[in-house]
Amino acid sequence: MRTSDAVSGTMAAALGAVLIVASADLDPLPRQVYGAGTFPKVVGGLLLLMGGLLVIKGLKQRQAWARWTSKVALRPFLQALAAVVASVVAYVLLTPVLGFPIVATALLTLLFRAYHRQGWWRALLFAAVATTMIWIMFAQLLHVPLNPGLLEQVLYR
């Protein structure tokens, strides 16, 4: 979604203001005026300046506050956005409980079914193969501690 430069400029300036306020109580180095707060204040100040200039530009050009300019239509984009966000949230919340193999297989089955549209059984089969490959690569070869969860007894018997 494309917003007016005034909107994105305001967001940048707000980030700058937050940086300046949050770095106010950082102490300078002993017997110096400079310290941990110096750089954040400079970055914050520049963000305020650049954001301000962008706001002026957006207002001068009378840009629309928000409009959809992307090549893809809004609906499929929102669906993709929801799919990605929901997948990540589900992964983070469910993996500690159910474990990687179950969560990854379930998520991939849903995503394959939604985007490949070739039936549930085929989606489940592809998902199981893909999960096994990722497990072998990351958990077995690279020793990333992916949580086996409920399948711990099966995988490490």
Partner: peptide
């Protein structure tokens, strides 16, 4: 660029050891 610099500021400052943001 400034957003990138802001992200890099998070954490312990390498010189003074103060914790930021």
């Amino acid at each position: 660029m400034l957003i990138g610099l802001s992200l890099a500021l998070v954490g312990m400052d390498s010189v003074s050891g103060q914790v930021r943001f």
